[in-house]
Amino acid sequence: METLEALQSRKAVRKYKKEQIKDSELDTILAAGGIAPIGLGDHASIHITVIQNPDLLSKVSKAVKTAVPAMEVPDPIYGAPTLIIVSSAPNERMPTIGDFNAACILENMLVAAADLGVGSVFMLSTILAFSNASLSKDLQIPIGFKPMAAAAFGYADEPVSKKELKNPYETTILR
């Protein structure tokens, strides 16, 4: 698939089949995240957690529901069989760099997943659940690292249609 085709087929999937993604697809998704641009080139400041264990996924889902009670969905991770969390160690020189690094890493992963026919959704609400120290310990988030963002991955329960390539934003071009 060409890059623009992958971008056009990328969609926030909120209903997944129970089938786990293939190990080869997970490896490709992780590798795509690994080539994302990282601020200051500080790869050691990033930790990736992949959750495929159903009990841990259930714990995350329950923790999100507790942290975000206004969320009116039965499962805040939408039944996805894989959840990937990007955590970052603090950087005094650039305090917000972890947010940007996580966004770049996950966007690469989301586009790679679309290219592979794997559905995905970027999730910020899950991060609120990780203020629970016990959950962070269960998920083996390293001490000193803070979860910045997460994404769910799996096979979409419904077909994903290709979007039209267009710019929907008000744009100013200065020449």
Score class of each variant (00 low, 15 high):
V118N: 05
L56H: 13
L57I: 06
V64D: 00
M123E: 12
L7E: 01
A152G: 04
A149G: 05
T66C: 00
D55C: 00
K15W: 06
M94L: 14
L57G: 11
A44E: 15
G119E: 05
T66H: 13
A63R: 04
G34M: 01
A103I: 06
S87W: 00
A113I: 11
Y155V: 07
A112D: 04
A44Y: 09
L4N: 13
L4K: 11
A70R: 13
Y169I: 10
A31W: 06
F130C: 02
L124A: 14
G33F: 04
T49Q: 11
E92C: 00
V86A: 08
Q140D: 13
A112Y: 04
L128R: 14
K62S: 14
P168D: 10
E25R: 00
K162A: 11
K162M: 14
D42W: 11
G33I: 09
V73C: 04
S88P: 00
H43R: 14
K162S: 14
A32Q: 06
L4V: 12
A67G: 03
A114W: 10
A31N: 06
A102D: 09
P159C: 01
M94V: 15
V86H: 03
V73N: 10
A133Y: 05
A151P: 01
I21N: 11
A31H: 10
A44Q: 14
S9L: 09
E72P: 03
P95V: 02
Y78R: 02
G39T: 08
I38K: 13
E19D: 13
D157K: 14
P159F: 02
M123K: 13
V86N: 05
P37D: 07
D115S: 15
L26T: 01
S120C: 11
S131V: 02
S120M: 06
P95T: 09
P37K: 11
K18T: 13
V121L: 12
A12N: 15
